Simulated assay, not measured.
Amino acid sequence: MSLMTRPDILRYTAFTTDPAGGNPAGVVLDAAALDDAAMLATAAGIGYSETAFVTVADRAARRFRLRYFSPLAEVAFCGHATVATAVALAERIGPGPLLFDTPVGEIAVDTAQDASAEPEGSVTATLTSVPTRSRPASDTEVSASLAALHWSPGDLDPALPPHVAFGGNEHLVLAVATRERLAALDYDFDALAEVMRRHGWTTLQLVWREAAELFHARDPFPIGGVVEDPATGAAAAALGGYLRALGALPPAGAFTIRQGQDLGRPSLLRVEASTTDPRVRVSGQAVAIAGVRASTGEGDV
């Protein structure tokens, strides 16, 4: 990567207003000059679970092309990096609707400034996913995943059966019966990565349902070179589609996901789904991480 192509890298953490919480993402708002190798090297140098790259920008039309890279590979869609990018753009060109062209299709994002939010004037971004889908997981998929997690079938919640759900990426959804089981997550990194590569899953969406409108989640991400995501917007969208498929949505269709507490990076994701629209809306805030210099993998930027 030459000096001419070194990008200006922003760092935001999504689904929080606390720089010490949420899920950090790299954001490159002008990546037009970067090729695939340069984007991968930049994402690897940053070291976050994903970095979003704006490769085409039409600020007048508020339309942008996004690509996403983990430290190891390109990812088709990433919810938390989408929210981070939307907030970064809204802070620069003003709040309002945005349209992102992504590898999985068009993603509309509404951004709004909330004078009552803390900190005052924080921007909230609400993405609308591509159409979701969900299917029962096979016995083979479940047994291999449980073995890598060091879990047993008795750890699962029988009211929420295992599914493979899609909200831009595919995720295996496993619901546990207790918060204690979720908190004690200690899995075999290499074994789970192999299961996920075999089936094409991006994360596992491990959840505990505290109430109809409140879930706790943990998302291992070994195939991206990251032990766990503190907040996962794409998996949140997939969970909305999963609950719709089961007929288990709350009456109003809205619920909250708390994620990241067990990592010391608490995150809050708000999800809205309906029985008439296959898409799901996921909302959250994001905040810049100050005082951090990013690396492209070839030296500081």
Rank of each mutant, 00 (worst) to 15 (best):
Y48Q: 11
Y48M: 12
T51W: 12
F53Y: 07
F53K: 11
T55L: 08
A57K: 05
D58M: 13
D58H: 13
R59L: 03
R59K: 09
R67L: 03
Y68E: 00
Y68S: 00
F69W: 14
S70Q: 10
P71T: 10
E74M: 07
F77I: 08
F77Y: 15
G79E: 05
A81M: 10
A81E: 03
T82H: 01
V83T: 07
A84H: 04
V87W: 06
A88P: 09
A90L: 01
A90Y: 00
E91D: 14
I93Q: 06
I93L: 15
P95V: 15
P95W: 07
G96I: 14
P97M: 11
L99A: 11
F100H: 05
P103R: 13
P103A: 08
I107Y: 00
D110N: 03
D110P: 01
D110T: 01
T111R: 03
T111W: 04
T111K: 00
A112E: 14
Q113V: 15
Q113R: 15
E118Y: 02
E118D: 10
P119F: 02
P119T: 00
E120G: 02
E120Q: 12
G121T: 04
T124M: 11
T124A: 14
A125S: 01
L127R: 08
L127Q: 13
L127H: 15
S129P: 04
S129K: 02
P131Y: 13
P131M: 07
T132Q: 12
R133Y: 12
R135V: 13
R135I: 09
P136N: 06
D139T: 13
D139H: 10
T140D: 13
T140I: 10
S143P: 09
S143T: 15
A144V: 09
A147M: 10
H150G: 12
H150I: 05
W151S: 01
S152F: 12
S152Y: 00
S152L: 10
D155T: 00
D157Q: 11
P158F: 04
